[in-house]
């Protein structure tokens, strides 16, 4: 039972050693190690920065931390997920671009709308409803 299965696997395995007609890249020990070392550096710097107390400007610290995260996500996409524009005739890349657009709309839209509601509605309730005269 296992003999034909292994024969099948070996037969299936041959195209992987050379050219990849389907555009899939399987990576190598070298590419995985490069990705891992880059990820360690890109993780250690923001953690170290925040653990050390960060810069004077909180905005600067936050910007640097988010910037490192963005770069690390790209590193993972390239070195671990083997993203490229060729695999599946570009459909994976297209699906990813579509998802990123929707994610940006969800995140930016939610934060913008809810921030607007928080800043514009809460103080007005204080100002427009003077409660003086009704007890305390």
């Amino acid at each position: 039972m296992s003999a034909p299965a292994q024969d099948h696997a070996a037969h299936h395995d041959t195209p992987h050693h050379g050219h990849h007609p389907d555009g899939h890249d399987h990576g190598s020990y070298r590419s995985y190690t490069i990705g891992f070392i880059l990820s360690v550096i890109l993780t250690a710097i923001p953690f170290g920065l925040v653990m050390a107390g960060g810069f004077e400007s909180r905005l600067l610290t936050a910007g640097i931390v988010v910037g490192f995260a963005a770069v690390q996500i790209l590193v993972h996409m390239v070195y671990f997920l083997h993203m490229n524009t060729r695999s599946d005739e570009g459909w994976t890349a297209l699906a990813l671009i579509f998802t990123v657009v929707v994610v940006v709309i969800i995140l930016a839209g939610s934060l913008w709308v809810m921030h607007n509601m928080n800043t514009n509605m809460m103080p007005q309730m204080d100002h427009s409803l003077p409660m003086s005269g009704f007890g305390s």
Binding site: T43, P46, F47, V50, G54, R58, T61, A62, V65, V66, F68, A69, Q72, I73, H76, M77, F80, L81
Partner: peptide, 21 residues
């Protein structure tokens, strides 16, 4: 598995690191 690691980058950045600044 690699996708979950990507999501974790977002979690430790936006939840933990930005929360501790």
């Amino acid at each position: 598995w690699h996708f979950l690691d990507v999501i974790w980058i977002g979690v430790f950045t936006f939840v933990y690191l930005l929360g501790m600044i």
